[in-house]
Structure formats: C-alpha cells, structure tokens
Design a protein around this nucleic acid. Structure first.
Length: 577
RNA sequence: UGGGGUGUCGCCAAGUGGUAAGGCACAAGGUUUUGAUCCUUGCAUGCGUUGGUUCGAAUCCAGCCACCCCAGCCA
C-alpha cells in the first residue's frame, strides 16, 4: 500500500517535505487512479546545457518515482531540429547521471514517435478535428485575433476531409515550401484561451533532424507531441512549469479527441491488464535564484560574448559549470529538496545554495592548508636545517578521513592578511611582539618586521615556543590560530577565487540590463599561492583549505606539476572588520 | 480592457475550519588549535486588503489591490 505523503522518505532518509504534488499523488494512489503506478518523465529539449533550474525538475521527477517505487523516463523533446543537436543530448545525459539519477529503460526521444504522431494526425483529420491551412505565419497571426478580440476562422477550415488528407500527405512528401501549409487542430477561434484558437500541429521544415536524419520534412509541434508522447510512455504524472498552464486544456483536448484504444495499443502499456488512464499535466513554479540568471538566451549570450569562458565556466549556473566549481551532486539534490515545490513564483536566496554546499563539504571534505597571499616567516629559533613532520587529522570530527603529514621547516609562509602592524579592534592574529598559534603546530612570537625600501613588509622573524606542540603555552592563553605552509616544501599553485556573477539581486528584472550589473570581481586569479604537499595526488574531489574556504582541483587546467584550484565557496565569516 | 495563475516572517515553505511547522538569513550566548563546524536561545497576537459566514477563519464566501503567464508554424 502506498503510504501517505508525510510518511515518505527522501534519499537522505529525512521525511520528504510535504507539497501539493505529493498530496495529489497520494490521492491518486488512494483512488487507484493509475492502478498504483507512478511514472514520471524529465523531458528536456536538447537545445542547450542544463542549469540548476533544470536540476529542480530532474530531482522532482526522479525523486518522486523513487519514493513511490515508480519509474522516471528521460525523454528528449526533440521536435524542433533547427535548434537542437547531439552535443546537447550527450551533455544532458551526462549531467543527469552525474546528479545521481538513472532513467527507466532506454533514453526516449519524441522523434521515436514520429510515425505514430503522423498516424494520429491522420486520425484527427479523418474525424474532422484537424485541417490543413494555407495561411502564412503572418496571416495566421492576424487571423488569431488578440487577447481581447476573438480570432477569425481560416478560409481552409471547412475543407473536405479528403482534401485535408491529400494536402497533409503532400506536406509529408515534400511538395511544399516551408510555411506554405500547416496542419491545425479545429477547436475554437473565439476561445478566450489563445492556445485553443486552432493551434498548429505540424509545420513544414526542410531540415535534417539529429535523430531521424532526412526522413521527415514536417515536424510536430510541442503541444501536439508532448501529450501523446506522455500517453505512449504510460506517464501518470506529467510535471511541467507554470507557463504551460494555459496549454493544459489543449493537452487534454488532443488526448481526448484521439481514439483511446489506438493510443493504448501503441503505448508501453499495450499488454497491461489495467485500465488505460491518460496522463495528467501538473504545473509548478520554476526555480529562480537571486544574483544569477537562468534564461537560456542570456546564458548562451554570456558564453558567446566572452563574458564567461564557456558553458562550464565555474561562475555559470549550468550543471557543467557548478560541477567544475566544486559543487557536489548531493549538495544540489539537498538544495532542490530544501527549496520545495509550489505554485507561487519565488526567488530563492543564493544563501540557500551556499548553505547546501557548505553543509556537504564541511562533513566530507578533507582539510589542508593553502596560503593565498604569501608572507615569509623565518622561525629564528630553529636550526637552519630544521625539519619536522607533523601529523594532523584530515577532518576535525571525522577520523575516517584519516591523517596527513605536514612538513614544518625554518622558513614558512603565512597569509599577508594574518599579520597587522596596526591591528583593528578585536584582531586576534599576529601582530608585532604578539603571539599566535600556527595551526597544528607551535605558538610563535613576532620579534621583528622586515620591510623593503618601499616600506612593504617582506618578512617576519619569529621565535618558537617549543613547549606548545599539542598543548597550550604555560601561564598565558593564545587566542589566534593561523594557517601556514613550509616555504621549501609547499607546492606553488594557482587559485581562482570565484564570486557571484552579478551585483544586482534580480539581473533578469524587466527594467534591468544584466550587462550593467556584472560583478568585476567574480573571478580573481592568484598565481603565487603555496599549498600543503598532502593535496598533490590526493584524489579527494574537494578540500577545505582551513580558514579560507572549500576548493577543488580544476578539472581542465590542473596538473600535479601546476595545481590549479577553484574556490567553490568561502567559509562563513562572522567576524566583521 | 479577454483568459489563466499567485499573494503566510528579510528569502523559501508547511498548513485543507479548532487557535501560525521547518529551513535559510539575522541576533545573543556556550564549546573550539579553522573568527569554521557544533550546541542553546531569540525571531509572524500575524497569514495582500476590506467586509461577510461561524462558538471559532490563513483555511469558507464576496469585493478590492498587487504581481506573474498567454497573441512562435519555440519549448
């Protein structure tokens, strides 16, 4: 027996949040509407790269299927070959697998159903529900009417079935130019819902299709294709975003005006004993996040104009970009679950996404030290050839992540920002004559500040309290702890600091031009960083560089000889100065 | 000015007539060899608004206001 919505468990084991879709499925199950089946689908058009907004839909569809012991198909909605390509098909499949989901059976394509779709179109013509129209696209627009005025019937609307059949066949056979004819549903040109004013079902396009080659020169439209594809695949719950709400009457009209037995026999449920029940479209609000853009057109434009370095630029909200940035699949899935599913259009705070990745990485990323802006420190009380190997745990709370060995030598680097000659109030790092703890090592005291001719600090000479390894110094307390790396054994590295791409909270707002609110500091490259040697060759995907943030090797530019790190996200910083 | 939607804390979001969950953010404490993590506490007499029904309304009814979507042979 299917359990109630509140009893379901998410992948993480926590109770899945209540939402209107789970309620609906719960009711459908209670009413045995689909004989207890839950079958969803993720239906991307392969005309671009997937972004975090798609992840919400992917998580929703696949998780629902998992929770209810159902299935989820991957179906490419490939009805517009002019905009689609195999490259996008491949990247989408790759992204979904990376996110951790597995579709049911083979990958589907709407184009798999082109033959059936054609037959159903003939059926609609034969039953007087569709006709071939000779209006040009421009004329069709005029005949459609406006939001407040009804449309006008096409002069071809009352053509005989015989004429329509003949014309439609000749459309398929390539006798006509693009735009010369279209197949339209015969519904109601006066409908207040413009989608119902005799919508186009088929249009002529003399172009190759990435899956069907040159087999067709007429292609079905989204509205006509989607509902039938759902019906063929035995989809029970067809989830889509809010802008398709006005299309639902058309979705239902097409399915209800087709012979249900002929639908059933070509469907995946052809051999099923159960009643054949038509799929139900349900809409939810798409994901929006502040300080970023989600529009495909804008993302493409940013790639093509060079604002970013490609679809997988770590600043992009694409799954490819976020992956390269260091986001983990689990963090994205948790994020999608935490934002919920509802029908009100909302803009989620970027802070939610940041919390999701910090939460995951804090638990799972091994720790290491990396100095971003090096300042040389000479530990004067050590001998010239001093060298020690300090063993530190890779994680402060999780021993299962093991330990690492960190070399300590007479000369080390610390970060420039961890020393101040004139410290602000509350500063608890190193100051002249003051003490600080070297993380995992000794307490040192700054005895001398060395400057160059221009007055810039180039070196600190410090003495070491050798009685402070693993214990507090006697008679005083040292509050500050700073990270460091051996000057001779640290590894030179490049670190790329990423930040939000936009300074404006809503760069997609109608009165905003996103070009004017680009964050000039969305990428800062640091070429003189020094990283602890334990990370070299370490195949952990992500690290926490202590006191700095979470970083990962750049999948493209990094090598053992010259490691390149991307900063995924900073640590939270409650110290305001 | 046609049709379809949505309005619950700064941001998400539960709630389906019985007296406002949770998360993020924020604030204040505590622990801490990461100014991290973790822990504790605080954070809507209020649910767009105005009326109505009811013993009782975020939940039901009516009006009003605001915002979003639709006039591709795009999806």
């Amino acid at each position: 027996m299917a359990d109630s919505a509140s009893g379901n468990k998410s992948a993480s084991g926590a109770a899945a949040p209540s939402n209107f879709i789970r309620h609906m499925i719960g009711e459908d199950l209670a009413n045995k509407k689909h004989a207890g089946r839950v079958h969803t689908r993720f239906p991307p058009e392969p005309n671009g790269y997937l972004h975090i907004g798609h992840a919400k839909s992917i998580c929703l569809n696949f998780s629902l299927a998992e929770e209810y012991n159902g299935r989820c198909n991957l179906r490419f909605d490939d009805t517009n070959p002019a905009k689609e390509s195999q490259e996008f098909v491949d990247s989408i499949k790759d992204n979904i697998k990376w996110l951790g989901f597995d579709w049911h059976g083979e990958v589907r394509y709407s184009s798999n159903y082109f033959d059936h779709l054609y037959d159903f179109a003939v059926q609609l013509i034969e039953s007087g529900k569709a006709y071939v129209c000779s209006l040009s696209p421009d004329q069709a627009r005029e005949y459609r009417g406006t939001l407040t005025e009804p449309g006008t019937n096409s002069p071809d609307r009352d053509q005989t079935i015989k004429e329509n059949l003949d014309l439609f066949k000749r459309m398929r056979d390539g006798e006509f130019d693009e735009g010369a004819y279209s197949l339209r549903a015969k519904i109601d040109m006066a409908s207040p819902n413009i989608n119902m004013r005799d919508p186009v079902l088929y249009r002529i396009r003399h172009i190759q299709h990435h899956q069907t080659g040159d087999k067709w020169c007429i292609y079905p439209t989204y509205d006509y294709t989607h509902c039938i594809s759902d019906a063929i695949e035995g989809i029970t719950h067809s989830l889509c975003t809010l802008e398709f709400e006005d299309h639902r009457p058309l979705y239902d009209w097409i399915l209800h005006n087709l012979d249900i037995d002929s639908l059933r026999v070509v469907s995946d449920l052809a051999d099923s004993e159960a009643d054949y029940v038509l799929p139900q479209q349900t809409e939810f609000a798409k994901l929006k996040i502040n300080y970023t853009v989600m529009g495909k057109r804008k993302l493409r434009e940013m790639v093509e104009s060079g604002i970013v370095d490609g679809w997988d630029d770590p600043r992009m909200p694409t799954l490819a970009g976020m992956r390269r940035r260091g986001f983990t699949p689990a963090s994205l899935r948790n994020f999608c679950e935490s934002v919920g599913v509802a029908r009100s259009e909302s803009v989620v705070d970027m802070g939610m996404l940041e919390h999701a990745i910090r939460d995951d990485l804090d638990k799972n990323a091994p720790r290491a030290m990396c100095v971003l802006n090096p300042l040389k420190v000479v530990l004067t009380t050590f001998a010239e050839d001093y060298r020690a190997e300090l063993t530190m745990s890779a994680h402060p709370k999780d021993e299962s992540l093991g330990q690492r060995v960190v070399p300590l030598t007479r000369e080390i680097y610390i970060d420039k920002s961890d020393f101040e000659e004139v410290p602000p109030p509350g500063f608890k790092r190193l100051i002249s004559g003051g003490e600080v703890r070297l993380r995992g090592a000794y307490v040192i005291r700054c005895d001398e500040v060395v400057k160059d001719d221009s007055g810039e600090i180039v070196q600190l000479n410090c003495s070491v309290d050798e009685n402070t390894l693993g214990k507090s110094p006697e008679g005083r307390k040292v509050k500050g702890v700073i990270h460091w790396v051996s000057a001779s054994e640290g590894v030179p590295a490049t670190v790329r600091l990423y930040d939000r791409l936009f300074n404006e909270e809503k760069p997609e707002a109608k009165d905003v031009d996103y070009h004017n609110c680009l964050n000039p500091e969305s990428l800062i490259k640091l070429e003189n960083c020094i990283v602890e040697p334990s990370v070299i060759g370490n195949d952990a995907g992500n690290f926490q560089f202590e006191r700095e943030g979470y970083f990962c090797f750049d999948s493209i530019d990094s090598s053992d000889a010259r490691p390149v790190f991307n900063r995924t996200i900073t640590l939270r910083d409650s110290w305001s100065n």
